[in-house]
């Protein structure tokens, strides 16, 4: 039925220069526009070798979401360190060998990713507000927030996210690629919601959902939002 053979392909490479993705959306839009269709459904490799040594973790879920949103198909990473490879693999990106770097530079100890709470139990419960500029990650489980998540704040979980107060910031569930993860919130005013890298920004969230109790989940490759 099948035959396995080696093949050579030339793929576009997107070199990542920093991990702050704030302006990336616009930059991608400009590049894609300039490429006039070239990037539509194009497999793209993410090159990590130009990232500064001390740059933090790469927000792959967001990055992959952004790239998909612009019609690219991110297929793998090149360069980078083991921690980054692990994070990339979690998003089902292949780690491609880099021929130029077989003699790799001395590896720094992989920085343990997001600073806040590491957690392995059933989930993480927060009762205080998450303020603009703060970032909370529930590793390996769900995140339950009993207070408001401010605009400019970011909450992430490997599992589900529940917010029992206004959600005004960004919420990313299933950040390691769990497509069954969901976001539940009592009052949706989010700047961005994402499940397993599929995201939607506030501009694309219908007015009928704003201020309502909503759940966000993946159905196939489509992010769905429903009132509860």
């Amino acid at each position: 039925m099948i035959e396995l053979k080696a093949g050579n392909f030339t793929l576009p490479v997107m070199r990542l220069l920093g991990t702050d993705l704030d302006g990336l959306g616009e930059e991608l839009a400009a590049k894609v526009e300039a490429g006039a269709g070239f990037f539509q459904h194009a497999p793209v490799v993410i090159d990590l070798s130009s990232l500064p040594e001390d740059s933090g973790e790469v927000p792959f879920p967001l990055l992959v979401g952004l790239m998909r949103g612009h019609g690219m198909i991110p297929v793998g990473v090149r360069g980078g360190n083991p921690a980054q490879h692990e994070a990339a693999a979690a998003m089902e990106l292949a780690v491609l060998a880099d021929p130029r770097r077989s003699q790799s530079r001395p590896r720094t100890v992989p920085r343990s990713v997001p600073p806040a709470a590491t957690h392995t139990g059933p989930g993480r419960l927060l009762t205080h507000p998450i303020r603009s500029g703060q970032r909370v990650y529930a590793r390996g489980g769900d995140l339950v927030v009993m207070a408001a998540v401010s605009s400019g704040a970011e909450i992430l979980a490997d599992g589900h996210i529940h917010v029992y107060a206004p959600l005004r910031g960004r919420a990313l569930a299933g950040v390691k690629g769990d497509a069954t993860a969901r976001i539940f919130c009592r009052d949706l005013q989010a700047e961005l919601v994402s499940v397993a890298g599929y995201y939607r920004i506030s501009e694309n969230i219908g007015a009928d959902l704003r201020g309502r109790a909503v759940q966000v989940f993946l159905e196939g490759r489509e992010l769905r939002m429903q009132t509860l």
Partner: peptide
Amino acid sequence: DRMLGILA
């Protein structure tokens, strides 16, 4: 709001 986060 941002200040409050830093205070915390």
